[in-house]
Simulated scan of single mutants.
Amino acid sequence: MSNTTISFSLHCVISPNQRSFTIVVLALIYLISLFGNLLVILVITFNQKLKTPMYILISALSVIDLANSTIVIPKMLADLHFEFSAVPYAACLLQMCVILIFEETESMLLMFMAIDRYIAIIHPLRYRSLITMKSVWTVILVLPVLAFLASTSFVFLASELSFCHSNILHYCFCDYFTMVQVACNHDPKFLLLLSCIAIIFGLGPFLLILFSYGQIGFAALKIRSVEGKSKAYSTCLTHLLVVGCFYFPLLTSYILPGAGVKLSVEVYNTMVIIGNVIPPMMNPIIYSFRNKEINSSIHRFFTRMKTAPNMNAW
């Protein structure tokens, strides 16, 4: 049978007694992600004082998180509700590619945000010359292009897979690794590509983020004020927490299979789902709502909506 005539059946591997609870939790996570990221985008868009490189990067992260959540979570909810969901071959490849693009773009964007904070704290006198609006917008426009080029390689390899035994993907959305597991092909190149891309676009940026925050942590040791030192460490730890929630599950699930380490369906599903749904919910809280400028802007935003809902006042 030609691949173009295949219709995959998605089947989320979740026990029936946990299905209702999972649906409620995912719906709540999606609503929080939707509200939080939309609010961050609106506040930064309509407040001219927040048109600086750091806030532009934060708004770009919110756009990616909003798009990723909208692509992933509603589909998962539908699959969980109906238990099985039929997806045409071309649509499945498209969804797989788009999710990979968002994952890779977010990984590189988080790296650039860490570099931004590293330069601002370690080399403050050079910050304005190195981090400009032009360089930030260049990064924001180039990163998706790089992610697209990397992700299309998965589409080409996935098109070589043949499905002679089963068309059931034991996953909540179309996923490259799950396709390889179901396919009749047994060439190591299919999983080797997954590990290589994960190392380049995941492990590399993650190590650079750890280096940046490590340097910031050492710089915080020189702060005499106990309050200032505590604030610096609190910021670093919370950023590393949300970064870890994104990188650790995805790197583990993408690199280990290519290295020959087998993961159970339940473990793999859990890892990738956590890496895709938790960070979009946490990023607005960690990167935005703890920021004084954004907090005051949100307060003014709702105040103006109550008194005179005219965005031109911003």
Rank of each mutant, 00 (worst) to 15 (best):
Q181I: 04
L193I: 03
D187I: 08
S195A: 12
F173P: 00
C174N: 09
L192A: 07
C172T: 06
V180P: 00
S195K: 14
S195F: 10
V180Q: 01
T178K: 15
H170W: 14
I199L: 09
A198H: 13
L208P: 03
V180N: 00
I168R: 06
I209A: 01
G217A: 14
F211R: 14
L193P: 01
G214S: 14
V182Q: 06
Y213K: 07
G214V: 08
D175Y: 13
C174Q: 04
D187N: 15
Y176D: 01
T178D: 08
F211A: 03
P205D: 10
L192N: 12
C172M: 10
L203I: 07
N185H: 10
G202C: 11
I199G: 00
L191T: 09
H186I: 01
C174F: 13
A198Y: 14
N185R: 09
K189S: 06
L207Q: 09
S212I: 06
V182H: 03
I199T: 03
G204S: 10
F201L: 09
P205C: 07
L203Y: 14
A183R: 11
I168M: 05
Y171F: 15
F190D: 05
F201V: 02
C196V: 11
C172Q: 13
M179S: 01
C174H: 05
F173Y: 15
Q215H: 14
N185S: 11
F190S: 01
H170Y: 14
G217H: 11
Y171C: 00
T178Y: 11
K189Q: 07
F190N: 01
G202T: 06
N185P: 01
S166R: 09
L193C: 02
S212K: 08
P188V: 02
P205A: 07
F206M: 10
C196L: 10
P188E: 01
F173M: 08
F211T: 02
A183L: 09
C196D: 07
L207A: 10
I197E: 04
N167W: 04
G202K: 04
L191H: 06
H165V: 01
M179H: 06
V182P: 03
F177C: 00
G217D: 10
G204Y: 14
F211I: 05
G202Y: 05
F190R: 05
F190Y: 15
V180W: 02
Y171M: 12
I199M: 06
